[in-house]
Amino acid sequence: MSFFSSGFFWFMEGVFACLAVLGLKLWAEDRGIPMPFWKWILAGIWVVFLGFTIAFVGTSLGENEVVAARLGGILFGLTSIVSGIGLWRLLHSGRKAVK
C-alpha cells in the first residue's frame, strides 16, 4: 500500500485542512473581513471543487487518460479559477478598515 492510499495520508489531509481553516480565520480577522457561516460554506464548496479538479487530473494521468486529464484540467480548472475570483470578491464584501 502506498502512502497516498493509506489512512495516515487522510489523517495528514485532515491536519492540513484544520490548519488551513485556522489560517483563513486569522487572515480574515487581520484584514477585517467578516466571516458569517454562509461564507464558510461557500469557501468549503469551492475548496471541495478545487480538490476534485486536482484529484481528477491526477487520477486521469494515473489511468493514462491524457485527454481526460487535459480537458478535465481546463474545464474544471477554469471553473475553479472563475468561481475562485468570484468567491474572493464575495469574501471581501463587508470588509471593515483595520486600525
Partner: peptide, 19 residues
Amino acid sequence: SALLGSAGLGFYGYEAGKD
C-alpha cells in the same frame, strides 16, 4: 497546509488512477 493538502490530493489521484 492548503498547498500541501492540494498537492496531496493530486498525488492521491495519480495513485488511485494507477492502483
